[in-house]
Structure formats: structure tokens, C-alpha cells
């Protein structure tokens, strides 16, 4: 009896903690590093300081500066290297895209081409119930923990009908993290093969998209968009960049895929 009272007292004290997202925009601190913003009008002639400073070759100059969010670690090297302050981070959390090309941004980018929803038929199948199997394949546990955080009461993924399941046979798709190590390649292939059709692949984090800081290591496959894995994992349906992405960036991507957010909202 006393114990029941203690449970209720603690419950009342802890309060209601689920965020109002997506009805209200997430509150992120001023220093939060969301989508980078480039102002290439500030670029001095013949300057490639940011390209040189970038640890993952996410920046390249093709007449003008371009930045690949799929390789970007959201570190501060380019920001610190730029003599003119042409690169800065915004607190924009929305970054998920449906194609690899859409992850490239440049000086003209005011808004990235965010992920579009699945077609009508797929939305009728998955729009209210999406079951995913997470596969960590060389993930440092950064992305895995942010995905796990989606299940806490603040983000409460279950309220959107999205759930992580134990067996690939119960799943509608796999959520891939990590640069696919040599030692995990077979496990990834088998897990993917065990998911019934139609199925989705969602790549979360710089490692899964491009190899991240480990790109070029002989111990990994650089990324699932590499030719090596094309026959086993034909395509990636959603890219969620970050190192690791904030949980709300992952949630935004998943909801966009399901057509649960108006595009641009």
C-alpha cells in the first residue's frame, strides 16, 4: 500500500515530459550544430582553406564551394579555418533526403531538398505502422544511442506508429548505422535478405552514408552507396546525415518518408 503510494508520488513529481514535436518546433541551444550555411560571396579568390581543413573531404571546389552533408562530421574545422566566416552552422535540424545528390549543398542553398514521402500505395501500407530493424555495422554507438533515445518519453517514437523490432522478418526495413565493417558485411547482407518485400533501407549517420572518419580504411566498406554493396543492398531510400544526427533529425526524416510532415514544414 505504502509502495503503491510511493509509485504514484514519484509519477506525479516526474510530470509529463513528451515533447510537442511535430506540432511545435524543437528547442535547440544556440551552439547546436545543425545544417551548415555557406555564404560563398565572402570566399576570397583562390582560397581553399576549408577544403584543406575538412577531415572527411566533405568540401570541394567546383568553381564554387560545395559541401556534402553525407560526409560532414559537423565538426568545426572549416568554420575555424575560414578567414572570412563564410561557413557557419545554423540550428536547422531538418536534413534528411531521399537521394545522395540532395545531400550536397552550396552557397545558393537556402533550403535542402528534404525527403519526399513514399508514393500513395506505400504510404497506405506503411504510413501508420512502420517496423524497423536496426543494424549496427561498425557504428561507434553514437548513432545507435540517438536512435535508442527516440524510444524515450521525450520523443516517444511509438506515438507515430514507428517501432523497432527484434527480427528482420517482422520488419519493413532496416536502419543502418556504421561504415559496414568487413566483419559485419555478411550479417548486414543476411539481415537485409531476411526482410520481406517491399522493404526500405535507411542510412543514419556519416559512417553509414560515406564511411565518415573511417573512410579509406581497409577494414570497412566505405559506405553502402559504394558499388561493392550494390548487389546486396540495391538502394538507400532515406539518408539521415550527422555525427551522430540529433534524435529529432532522425525523427524528422522518418516522418517525412511516411508523409507525416508537410514538405518544408
Amino acid at each position: 500500500m505504502i509502495h503503491t503510494w510511493n509509485v504514484l508520488k514519484a509519477r506525479l513529481g516526474q510530470g509529463h515530459r513528451t515533447s510537442d514535436y511535430p506540432d511545435e518546433a524543437p528547442v535547440l541551444p544556440e551552439r547546436f550544430r545543425g545544417r551548415p550555411v555557406i555564404d560563398d560571396t565572402k570566399c576570397p579568390a583562390d582560397c581553399d582553406a576549408c577544403e584543406k581543413a575538412c577531415p572527411t573531404r566533405a568540401i570541394r571546389f567546383d568553381r564554387k564551394i560545395q559541401l556534402d552533408l553525407g560526409r560532414c562530421l559537423f565538426c568545426r574545422e572549416c568554420v575555424e579555418a575560414c578567414p572570412e566566416g563564410a561557413i557557419r552552422y545554423s540550428t536547422e535540424h531538418r536534413m534528411a533526403t531521399r537521394t545522395r545528390e540532395d545531400l550536397w549543398i552550396d552557397g545558393k542553398t537556402t533550403e535542402t531538398r528534404l525527403a519526399s514521402a513514399l508514393d500513395q500505395k506505400m504510404r497506405s501500407l506503411f504510413g501508420r505502422s512502420l517496423k524497423l530493424r536496426q543494424v549496427a555495422a561498425g557504428d561507434c554507438n553514437g548513432c545507435a544511442l540517438e536512435i535508442q533515445a527516440l524510444n524515450n518519453v521525450v520523443f516517444d517514437l511509438g506515438r507515430f506508429g514507428i517501432q523497432f523490432v527484434a527480427s528482420p522478418r517482422h520488419a519493413d526495413g532496416i536502419l543502418l548505422t556504421g561504415p559496414i565493417t568487413q566483419n559485419m558485411k555478411l550479417a548486414v547482407q543476411k539481415t537485409y535478405a531476411a526482410v520481406p518485400d517491399p522493404k526500405w533501407v535507411i542510412a543514419v549517420g556519416a559512417c553509414a552514408i560515406s564511411g565518415g572518419p573511417f573512410q579509406g580504411s581497409p577494414a570497412i566498406h566505405r559506405g553502402p552507396d559504394d558499388d561493392i554493396d550494390k548487389k546486396d543492398i540495391p538502394s538507400i531510400d532515406l539518408y539521415i546525415p550527422g555525427c551522430p544526427p540529433h534524435p529529432v533529425t532522425i525523427l524528422d526524416g522518418l516522418l517525412r518518408l511516411l508523409g507525416r510532415l508537410e514538405s518544408g514544414a
Binding site: G138, C207, P213, F214
Partner: peptide
């Protein structure tokens, strides 16, 4: 299964890359 070759990236001169690997 998670082996990515992290140590080999640190056996160089310190750089933004080696720092990123150390953090990962």
C-alpha cells in the same frame, strides 16, 4: 565485428582526421 582500424588512423601526425577518429 566492429573493427574499423581506428589505431592506424592515429599513427600519423595529429590532424583533424585523427581527432575525429579518437572521438569515434
Amino acid at each position: 565485428y566492429q573493427h574499423r582500424g581506428a589505431e592506424s588512423f592515429l599513427e600519423t601526425a595529429p590532424s583533424p582526421r585523427s581527432m575525429a577518429v579518437a572521438e569515434s
